[in-house]
Amino acid sequence: MMTSRTQGYLYVAITMCIWGGFTITSRLNAIWHISPWDITALRFSLAFCILMPILLYKKDTAFLFKKEPFILAMIGGVAYCLTSYSAFHFVPAAHAAIFLNGCIPLCTALAGFFLYKQPFDKHTWISLVIMMTAISAMSFLMYEETGVAFGFGDFLFFCSAIWWGIFTVLLRQWKLSAWHSMAGVAIWSAIIYVPIYLLFLPKHLDQATMPHLLMQTLFHGVFVVIIATLAYVEAIKRLGAFKTGSIVTLAPFIAAIIAVPLLNEPLSLAIICGLIGMGIGALQPWRWFAHKDSLQTSLEQQNKD
């Protein structure tokens, strides 16, 4: 029998593989001519077909009629997917690690401050300084190399980080279960987005091959939407929120390095600078030496009370 700690690391490994795969496969969408409109519709359509029968069988649909799952779906489902998938059509995978995954902790802290007046702790301030320094150095080097400091894809990735930061804060504030959060986002995203896609949005499914469409639909509709979400929550239960979040944050950065030989993508001095700086800022390695995470201390105090 595996210990709870070992199970936690197993769930972390599963999450890392899927999150890293998200970066690689999303970039492949651009190479395989699968548009952001198409993959978003395919992703939520498949998840809907899997989850809705389960909810009906369990007679667990009442939560869908509350405003919280709908709002989460529009922000963390439709808006996040459209901006993030679109960004991969403009810039390499390494930019996702920097401007999306690297900025998510910062955007989450900012969303908490603006929405619920949650103050920054010292770790957030340290991360902010490191990230701003890394982005400034990276933009200077990119301007020296190409004459352009930031691209449109970088802007879209940063918008995606903002959406995910707001989504995370709302999810934490509303205290929905992992199952209800995941199912609500998938189902409401499908209900709202798919009809709009079918009626009004451009479709380019004929430009991609059937094996590519099937692979991407299965991976993004099942592995990303369902399996990664549940594995991530199970890892948090066993290892704690900070340790789990720190480890899985490595996945997109590792994927960005793998994309260099796998997808023949460039790796300049500017990108290396951005990856290192944003990686350190997102991981906050100095907190690993603290006796106890502040979040874990707060949870233990609540349990005592």
Score class of each variant (00 low, 15 high):
residue 174 W to F: 10
residue 175 K to H: 15
residue 175 K to N: 13
residue 176 L to G: 10
residue 182 M to T: 09
residue 184 G to K: 07
residue 186 A to K: 06
residue 186 A to W: 01
residue 187 I to M: 04
residue 187 I to V: 14
residue 188 W to M: 04
residue 188 W to G: 04
residue 188 W to E: 03
residue 190 A to L: 04
residue 193 Y to F: 02
residue 194 V to M: 07
residue 196 I to H: 15
residue 197 Y to K: 07
residue 199 L to P: 08
residue 200 F to Y: 12
residue 200 F to D: 11
residue 202 P to R: 05
residue 203 K to Q: 15
residue 207 Q to T: 13
residue 208 A to G: 15
residue 208 A to L: 10
residue 212 H to T: 12
residue 212 H to F: 07
residue 212 H to M: 11
residue 215 M to K: 01
residue 215 M to R: 00
residue 216 Q to I: 03
residue 216 Q to K: 02
residue 217 T to I: 04
residue 219 F to P: 02
residue 221 G to V: 06
residue 222 V to I: 15
residue 224 V to A: 06
residue 226 I to V: 12
residue 226 I to L: 13
residue 227 I to R: 04
residue 229 T to R: 04
residue 231 A to R: 00
residue 232 Y to P: 00
residue 234 E to W: 12
residue 234 E to S: 15
residue 235 A to K: 01
residue 237 K to Q: 11
residue 239 L to K: 14
residue 243 K to V: 15
residue 246 S to M: 14
residue 247 I to F: 03
residue 247 I to T: 01
residue 250 L to G: 13
residue 251 A to V: 13
residue 252 P to C: 04
residue 256 A to R: 00
residue 257 I to N: 13
residue 257 I to S: 12
residue 257 I to W: 14
residue 258 I to L: 13
residue 258 I to W: 09
residue 261 P to I: 00
residue 261 P to E: 06
residue 262 L to G: 05
residue 262 L to R: 08
residue 264 N to K: 10
residue 264 N to H: 15
residue 264 N to G: 10
residue 264 N to L: 10
residue 265 E to M: 11
residue 267 L to D: 10
residue 269 L to N: 14
residue 270 A to V: 01
residue 271 I to D: 03
residue 271 I to C: 02
residue 272 I to G: 09
residue 274 G to T: 02
residue 274 G to Q: 03
residue 277 G to S: 05
residue 277 G to Q: 04
residue 278 M to V: 03
residue 279 G to S: 07
residue 279 G to V: 12
residue 282 A to Y: 03
residue 282 A to L: 07
residue 283 L to E: 05
residue 287 R to M: 14
residue 287 R to H: 10
residue 288 W to K: 02
residue 289 F to Q: 15
residue 289 F to G: 02
